[in-house]
C-alpha cells in the first residue's frame, strides 16, 4: 500500500504544488489521479519514486518511508511509464525494454528472453525488437513504454499521462489493452491523467485534485458520479455536461441510449450480455455508455 501523510511540496519559486495531501492507495488496483493542469498530480506521482521529494510530510510504501530508501534502488523497483514514451532513441526496442533488469544485474540472456515475452504481452510483434524507437508509431512506442515499465516485474507501476500524446483511436486501444494486462497482472497502478473519461474507464479509485494540490474528492467512479462533494467536482466529472445525461429510448425495436439532445450515445446491451462485467470495470463501463 502507498500512503501519503500530510504531504506538501513548495517549489523554489514559492508556489505550493501539493498542499497537505493525505491519501491511501489500495494495492493491486488502479488509482487514477485526475485534475486540471497545475493541480500537482504529476508531482504527487513523482514523490512515490523520489523523483520529487516532499517539502513536508511522508510518503510510505508498505509502511516504509521512501525518504529512507536509496532513490536509485527505489526507482528500479517501481515501474514508470510516461507521456511521449521517453524511450532511449539510441537503444533498440528490446534494449529499452530490458533496461531496468540489466541495471539490476540480471544476465543479458535472461533479460532478453523476458523482454521478448513482454513485447508479446503488450501486443507487439517480435520483429520490432531490433528496431529503434524512432522507427515506430506513437502507439507502438507507448506499448514499448508499458513493456519497459513492467520489465522488472515491479509491484507498483506509475503512469504519467501515458496515452496523452496519441490519437483517440489508438488511445482507446491502449486503454483497453492496459485494462486487459491489469486483469492478468494485478499491479498497484497509479495513473495520472487530465481526462476524466479515461479516469473513470481505468480507475478502481479516482482521486480528483484541484489547483494548488488539494484533494477535492476520492472514491469509485460511481461514488463520485452519485455524490460529488461540491460544484468543482460536479463540473469536473461533467455532471453539468448534457452529453453525459443519458436516457433510454426504443427505436425500431432496439433500445438505444441517447443524450439530452437526442443524439445516440450507444446501444443498451441485452441483459445476458451484460451479466459478467469485469470486476474492476463494473461502474465505469456502464456509465460511459
Amino acid at each position: 500500500m502507498i500512503e501519503f501523510r500530510s504531504v506538501s511540496k513548495r517549489y523554489e519559486e514559492g508556489a505550493l504544488a501539493v498542499a497537505e495531501v493525505n491519501l491511501a492507495i489500495a494495492p493491486r488496483a488502479v488509482t487514477v489521479l485526475v485534475g486540471p493542469s497545475g493541480c500537482g498530480k504529476t508531482t504527487l506521482l513523482r514523490m512515490i519514486n523520489r523523483m520529487v521529494d516532499p517539502t513536508s510530510g511522508q510518503v510510505l510504501i508498505d509502511d516504509v518511508d521512501v525518504a529512507t530508501r536509496n532513490p536509485v534502488q527505489l526507482r528500479r523497483s517501481i515501474g514508470y511509464v510516461m507521456q511521449n514514451s521517453g524511450l532511449m532513441p539510441h537503444r533498440t526496442v528490446l534494449d529499452n525494454v530490458t533496461t531496468v533488469p540489466i541495471l539490476q544485474g540480471v544476465s543479458r540472456t535472461q533479460a532478453r528472453a523476458r523482454g521478448m515475452e513482454l513485447l508479446a504481452t503488450v501486443g507487439l510483434d517480435a520483429s520490432l525488437a531490433k528496431r529503434y524507437p524512432g522507427q515506430l508509431s506513437g502507439g507502438q512506442q507507448q506499448r514499448v513504454g508499458v513493456a519497459r515499465g513492467l520489465a522488472a516485474d515491479p509491484n507498483i507501476l506509475l503512469m504519467d499521462e501515458p496515452f496523452g500524446a496519441v490519437d483517440p483511436i489508438v488511445r482507446r486501444e491502449l486503454q483497453t489493452e492496459l485494462a486487459r494486462i491489469q486483469s492478468e497482472l494485478a499491479k498497484t497502478i497509479v495513473f495520472v491523467t487530465h481526462d476524466i473519461d479515461e479516469a473513470f474507464l481505468l480507475g478502481d479509485q479516482v482521486v480528483i485534485l484541484r489547483e494548488g494540490g488539494h484533494v477535492a474528492q476520492m472514491g469509485t467512479p460511481t461514488e463520485l458520479l452519485a455524490n460529488p462533494v461540491d460544484d468543482f467536482v460536479a463540473d469536473f466529472i461533467g455532471r453539468g455536461d448534457e452529453s453525459k445525461h443519458l436516457r433510454i429510448t426504443e427505436r425500431n425495436g432496439t433500445r438505444l441510449v441517447v443524450d439530452q439532445r437526442g443524439r445516440v450515445a450507444g446501444v443498451l446491451a441485452a441483459p445476458e450480455q451484460a451479466a459478467e462485467p469485469h470486476p474492476s470495470k463494473r461502474e465505469g463501463g456502464a456509465w460511459t455508455g
Partner: peptide
C-alpha cells in the same frame, strides 16, 4: 538531449554516473 529521455532515465533508476 531531450528532457523526456533524461527524465525517463532518472525514473528507470540510472545512477548519475550511468
Amino acid at each position: 538531449v531531450s528532457q523526456d529521455v533524461r527524465q525517463a532515465s532518472v525514473a528507470m533508476g540510472y545512477s548519475s554516473w550511468q
